[in-house]
Amino acid sequence: MKLKQLEGLLGDLEQFSNPKVELEQYPTGPHIASRMLFTAENSYGDITDKVVADFGCGCGTLSAAAALLDAACVIGYDIDTESLETATLNAEELEVEIDFVQCDITKLQLKGKIVDTVVMNPPFGTRKKGADMEFLSAAMKVASQAVYSLHKTSTREHIKRAALRDFNAKSAEVLCELRYDVPKLYKFHKRKEVDIAVDLWRFVPKQN
C-alpha cells in the first residue's frame, strides 16, 4: 500500500465525539499516523506479519494503520468505553480484524513475548504528570522487537535518558520531528488550533 492511500483511508475514520481531557484524548491525525506506521514497516519491517499492540489506542487510528499494512494480529488497549466503541466501528468500516481490550495500561501486565511491536500515541503527561513515562515503561516490557511512540520534542533528553537507564532500552532514536496539530477541543484551549513539535521515536528493548 502506498503512503497516500494509507493516509486517505485513515482520514475517513471517526474520532472522539466527546473527548475527555483527563485522559488527554487527542486524535492521532492521518498524516502522523500514516507516516509513523509506514516508516515502521518500510524502514524496519516491524509491522507486516507481526503482532502489533496499540497502547492507549483511542479510536484506533494506529491500530487500523497497522492492520492495513498487514500485521498478522493487531490488539488495541484503552481505558475508555466510548473510544473503544468508536474504534470497533472504525475497524468494521475498514473491514480489518482488530482485537480490543479495555484496561488501564499502567496496571496491565501482559504475559510472555507474543507482541513484537508496540505503537502508541500516549498521553503527553501534561494533565497527569508522568503518564507518558508510564506508557513507555509498560510498552518496553511488552514489545520483543520495537516500540514506536510520539513524545513532545521539548522532553527529548528526558525520554532518552529514562528509556536507556530505566526502561531496558538497547537503543532510543528519534526518527523524525513532526508537527502535531491540536485542534481546539477543550474549553481551556485559548487559540483555535496550535501545532506542537513532537518526536517520532523508535525504541529497541534489550533481549532478555
Partner: peptide
C-alpha cells in the same frame, strides 16, 4: 477477543 489476545492476559488484582 481472540485466543492470541487471551494468551497474554492475566488477572492483575
Amino acid at each position: 477477543m481472540r485466543l492470541i489476545t487471551h494468551n497474554m492476559l492475566s488477572c492483575n488484582i
